[in-house]
């Protein structure tokens, strides 16, 4: 048998049991930590950046939400007719 391949097989055989499992656990731990940090940054990054921006005198990056008023929403006419005009004369 090729002695170099035998050497490789010995290396592979040495990488079993606790050594193999231990490294896998360490990798999993590092991946979980990276995932946790990434999710923290994803959640709070924009808010933190906005806070810093406002504290340093800038404007908030978040768009101001506008709500339709009650009267505007009532004006929606599905038939395209103009809204009813108020009466010209005041009936006393």
């Amino acid at each position: 048998m090729n002695s170099f391949l035998a050497l490789r097989d010995q290396d592979l055989a040495a990488f079993t049991g606790e050594r193999r499992t231990g490294i896998r656990k360490r990798v999993e731990r590092e991946l979980r930590t990276a995932e946790f940090i990434a999710s923290i940054v994803e959640l709070f990054g924009p808010v933190m950046a906005d806070t810093v921006s406002v504290l340093s005198g800038g404007h908030s990056m978040q768009a101001e939400e506008s709500y339709r008023t009650f009267s505007e929403s009532e004006d929606d006419d599905p038939f395209g007719e103009p809204p009813a005009r108020p009466p010209q004369e005041i009936v006393r």
Binding site: R8, D11, A14, I23, V27, E30
Partner: peptide, 26 residues
Amino acid sequence: AGKVYSKAMTMLHKPSEAEDATQEIF
């Protein structure tokens, strides 16, 4: 994992260094 460890052993020669390298690589 075994193949990566074996190749790390080729280059680094020490089992402890090869283990650390395998972890970093994965």
